[in-house]
Design a protein around this nucleic acid. Structure first.
Lengths: 129, 129
DNA sequence: ATGTATCTACGATATTTTTCGTATTTCTTT
DNA sequence: AAAGAAATACGAAAAATATCGTAGATACAT
């Protein structure tokens, strides 16, 4: 029974994945230090998480040296897409536009980002002019 | 010790809130039947949830008749906003535009909705011409 | 080469979330 | 008024998440 590579990461797992996506393959110590910038977490706690994530097939450790280096097996965009779809359904009953409106309304969004979005809108509407 | 009215609802709690937002104040039985359209859940399970949610200050039961009627104390948009902010940070590292792009890209969005979004963009950019 | 620091392995505990069973109370129906 | 149906109250088990301590192995510095 080989394990399916994906699942829904928990919040804590997601935080770790974020760090790995952002910084590339890393050691437990590094991840732990990064996590500690936000809140206190014991080293072994982080280690345990990363081991569990490895069991679940989310990470792969390079064990060639004593200090293991973990890399994420889940793709960032893939994972985001799945999480987003789930979130959209549970929190917004599937209404993407409501979500988008909230997301844009609640936060400062840079001019550059707004332009990107506008471009996307153009592309989406371009399909049926 | 008065309880703070809000907290982060769990997924199961959110499902119940959704039903109450959608249909207005309801009985346990009604909520339970709705939940059962998606998956089997025992009546007492639903009851317990709604009682816990009441303790947490998310719901308020009208107990004037034997069959209690629960109404949500959390506002839909409020709650969505909070959940969204959290989700945005944990899943998209705070990048609203990335989230928006994914949300629009992954799903069919109606012309009407696209227009709404475009209007919002105009309004957002209007602020600093 | 010996003590100290750093790792991983592993198991255990704590916390939160989900799920139910049973008892008791309150209607309804006959 | 008694039997049965439908609700709530309560407690507790089960499952999923999160957190840590200790032991043993490995490297490093003196």
């Amino acid at each position: 029974m080989s394990k399916e590579p994906s699942q829904k990461p928990t919040e804590a797992e997601l935080e770790i994945l974020q760090l790995l996506w952002q910084h590339g393959p890393s050691t437990v110590r590094f991840v732990n230090e990064e996590l500690n910038k936000a809140k206190e977490v014991g080293y072994t706690t982080t280690l345990k998480f990363m081991q569990i994530m490895t069991e679940k097939g989310m990470l792969a450790p390079d064990k060639s040296s004593r200090t293991h280096i973990y890399r994420p097996l889940l793709q960032e965009e893939d994972t985001q897409r799945k999480l987003l779809n789930r979130f959209l359904d549970t929190a917004f009953r599937g209404s993407a536009s409501k979500l988008v409106m909230q997301a844009l309304g609640n936060r400062e969004t840079s001019q550059e980002e707004l332009n990107e979005i506008r471009n996307l809108l153009d592309k989406l509407e371009g399909g049926k002019p």
